[in-house]
């Protein structure tokens, strides 16, 4: 399939996503996992229009011939280290501290996830709060992945997280938004931005999520796992922008009966 150019898609107003001391034009954050190769990942990132790219921290694979870093232009993108796969606060904190020693990250933003169960990949709130507290105190801009729980979202805001990232449905499930009402409650509960992290399956999920009034979306599998990841990356960039614009534009109320678009005055027959 040919890739469509999205150059014409612009907004005529300033609508920035602010996370702590950082500001971004794009409201879509993308992961780097599950791509068939780094070249596809690179192109998908470009087409998504994202400015923040999340990466894991892992032992070096001595068999790996290509250097992932050479596929990411750090002048163009903000690399966001994550704690994917950590099951305790201690492991998550150590992973972030280790990531700092890499010396390649240009911001102090970190995506914190502390998993409680391998089957659902739901977070362990107790361990998450513990890790968030430590990392906030160490000066990191902590972006926590949470379940769609307004209480834990508020606690994280109070700790000093400048954003909260509730799931729409389990990581990689593609189920879309399972509880839009909770996402709305979270948005009303906290004053920091809300970025929906995980669960989006296709472009309509992304648009609907943004129409709820949340501030952004983080996704990986929905793009990387698509049959055509490049065009899906582009579709997601449109969907996030469309959903955001629709939210800001104020949708019409839903009514049970019709409301004619054409006036009756002047009708001939």
């Amino acid at each position: 399939m040919e890739i469509i150019n999205n150059e014409h898609l612009t907004t005529n107003f300033e609508d920035k996503l602010t996370i702590g001391k950082y500001s971004f034009k794009s409201r879509l954050i993308v992961g780097t996992g599950k791509y068939p190769d780094f070249a596809t990942m690179q192109k998908a990132i470009e087409l998504s229009g994202s400015e923040i790219i999340t990466v894991a921290i892992r032992r070096i694979d001595f068999e790996q011939k290509e250097n992932m870093l050479s596929f990411i232009d750090q002048d163009k993108y903000t690399l966001l280290p994550n704690t994917a796969g950590c099951f305790t606060a201690e492991d998550a904190v150590s992973t972030i501290r280790l990531s700092r020693e890499l010396g390649i990250f240009k911001t102090d933003m970190v995506k914190l996830e502390v998993i409680g169960d391998p089957k659902t990949l739901y977070p362990d709130n107790e361990e998450l709060l513990k890790a968030a507290k430590i990392l906030v105190n160490e000066g990191f801009t902590v972006m926590p992945y949470i379940i769609d729980d307004p209480i834990v979202a508020k606690k994280l805001e109070d700790i000093g997280c400048p954003v909260v990232m509730p799931l729409a449905s389990p990581i990689g499930s593609g189920l879309g938004i399972r509880n839009p009402y909770n996402l709305k409650i979270i948005k009303e509960t906290v004053s920091v931005p809300v970025i929906v992290d995980a669960g989006v399956g296709t472009a309509s999920d992304a648009a609907k999520t943004m129409e709820l009034g949340v501030d952004g979306i983080l996704m990986n599998t929905a793009i990387a796992g698509a049959t055509d990841p490049l065009n899906m990356a582009l579709a997601m960039s449109y969907a996030v922008k469309a959903g955001r614009l629709a939210f800001l534009s104020g949708r019409i109320p839903m009514k049970l009966y019709a409301s004619a678009s054409t006036q009756m005055e002047g009708i001939v027959f």
């Binding site: 892992r58 032992r59 694979d61 992932m68 990986n220």
Partner: peptide
């Protein structure tokens, strides 16, 4: 080990060294 110490830190017998970098993930 802080990066500033890599050129001074001498490895000992039976040490377990982890070398990490960025990897694909979401």
């Amino acid at each position: 080990v802080p990066k500033a110490q890599y050129s001074e830190f001498i490895l000992k017998d039976k040490d377990r060294l982890d070398l990490v970098t960025i990897a694909p993930g979401g």
